[in-house]
Simulated assay, not measured.
Amino acid sequence: MAFLGTLCLILVLTTLAGNFANRLGVPAVIGELVIGIVIGPAMLNWVQLNSLVSLFSDIGVVILMFLGGLESDLKLLVKYLKPAIIVATSGVVFPVTIMGAVSWWWGFSPLEALFIGVIFSATSVSISVAVLKEYHALSTREGATILGAAVADDIIGVILLSLMISLLASQGIQTTGSQPALGLVLVEQVAFFGGTYLLVKWIAPYLMHLSERLVMASSVTIMSMVICLGMAWLANIVGLSGAIGAFFAGIAVANTPYRNTLADHVEPLGNAVFIPVFFVSVGLNMTLAHLSENVGLIVALTVLACLTKLIGCGLGARLSQFSWTSSTVIGTGMIARGEMGLITAQIGHQAGLMSNTSYSAMILIIILATILAPLFLKPALKRLPVAAKV
C-alpha cells in the first residue's frame, strides 16, 4: 500500500510542475521530467525506481504511443515512409561514427568506443510524441516522418545490438541471457509487420465492431486496450520496443469509426495516472554518482548526442526535399534517447565492457539528451508555417 502514497506524490507534483512549465512557456513534460530528478536518487531520494513504478511507467509509455497512433494519419505515414527511412539511417550513422570516434579519442578502447556509438544511435520518440501532441503537430508531414523514422530506427537499433552481442561473444566477452540469432529476429519482425497490416486492414475493424455488440460497459474502450496491450506485448517478443506495437495498435484502431470516442476515453486514463509516472521514471534513472570524475566526458557526449541526431536526421530530411525549417523540426524530434540506449548500456556494463563510472555517465547522458529534446523541439515547431501545422 505504500506505493499508493508514492503514486499520490507523483501525481500532485507532476500536475503542479506541468502547470508551472506551461506558464513559463516550455513543454509540460519538462516539468514532469525535472520532478523525477528532484524526488529521485539524484537529489531528495524520496522515490526509487522499484518494480511498481517501472510497471506503471511501462504502461504509461504504451498508452502514450497508442494515443500517438490514434492521432496519426496513416496515409501521411505511408506517403513519407521513404524519407523516414533516410532520416533514420543518417540518424544512426552520425552517432555511431562521431560519438564512437570521440569516445576512442577520449581513451576508451575501440570496442568500448563502438559500443558507446551504438548506445546513442537509438531514438526514443515517446517524449517527442508528447510534445507533438501538445502542439497539435502529429498529423503533419514532419510528425509523420518523425514517427516513421522512429520505427525504422528501432529496427536498426535491434540489428546493431544483435551485431554488438555477436562481436562481444567473438572477443570472449559473455553477455547475460541467451540471445536469438539475428536472422530469426529479422524473420520475427517481418512477421510482426505482416500481422500489423492484417490488423489495420481487417482484424481491428472486426474486433471493434464485435465489441460494440457486447452487453458490457465501456466494451469498445476495453477492446481497444486489449489490442493496444497485445500489440505492445508482441512487439516486445520480437525484439522491438513495446511502444512501437502500441503505436501501430493506435493506427489500426484509428481506422475505425471509434477513433474520436476512444481518444476521449483513453487520454484521460493515461494522463491521469500512467503517463506522468513514465516521465517521472526517466528522471528517477538519474544519479550523480561519479559525476565529478566525468564532467568533461558527460558535457562533450551530451552535446554530441544532441548534435549528431539534429544534424544527421536533419540532413536526411533535407536530402528528402524538406525545407531547412522542417528538417530542423525532424532533427530535434529525433534527439531523445530511451529504452534501447539503456538496454545497450546495461548489456555493456554486465559484460564488463564499461566500468561503474562509465556506465553511470552513459545513463546520465541519455537522460540529459532526453530532457533537452523537448526544449529544442518546441521552438522548432513554432517556426513551421501555419499551413504546415494544419
Rank of each mutant, 00 (worst) to 15 (best):
V34L: 14
G312H: 06
A243M: 09
V280R: 08
L307W: 07
G352Q: 04
L240P: 08
P374D: 07
L64Y: 09
Q48E: 13
L372P: 01
V187T: 14
L74S: 09
E71K: 15
I86N: 13
A369W: 01
S327T: 10
I222G: 02
G157H: 01
V34C: 04
A232V: 03
E134F: 09
L24Q: 00
V386A: 15
F274T: 13
M164H: 02
L198N: 05
L381N: 11
I244F: 11
T196Y: 10
I237W: 12
M354H: 03
L167E: 13
S355V: 00
I85C: 07
L132Q: 11
I86Q: 12
H290G: 04
S323L: 02
L375T: 08
H290V: 01
V185S: 12
V215C: 06
G60C: 05
T97Q: 05
V295I: 15
L161Q: 12
L288N: 06
I347E: 03
I203N: 03
L372W: 00
G18D: 00
F108M: 15
L49A: 12
L377G: 11
V282D: 06
L70H: 08
I244R: 07
I116K: 07
G5N: 14
W105C: 05
V200S: 07
V38F: 10
G148F: 06
M65N: 12
L9S: 15
L301C: 10
Q346R: 15
I98S: 05
A2K: 13
R23W: 04
E112I: 03
G250I: 01
L11N: 10
A289C: 02
V220G: 04
L52E: 13
V125S: 13
L342P: 01
L76A: 10
L234A: 15
G283Q: 07
A380K: 11
G314V: 07
Y135F: 15
A232D: 08
L9W: 12
G5A: 11
L4H: 08
Q346H: 11
A204Y: 03
G348D: 13
M362N: 05
L111G: 09
C8N: 01
K82W: 09
H136E: 04
S57M: 04
L353T: 01
C306R: 03
E188A: 12
S126N: 03
P385T: 10
Q179G: 00
N50S: 09
L138V: 13
W324C: 08
P95C: 10
A122M: 10
L288T: 14
L67G: 02
L304I: 05
F94D: 09
M208S: 10
L377E: 02
L297G: 07
R259A: 02
V158Y: 01
Q321S: 10
T6Y: 03
G314T: 12
F115N: 11
H265V: 00
T6H: 11
V282P: 00
L301F: 13
E339Q: 12
L186K: 14
L163V: 15
L167M: 15
W324N: 14
A351G: 05
A235C: 06
S219D: 00
T6D: 14
V62R: 09
I298H: 09
M334S: 08
A361R: 01
R213Y: 00
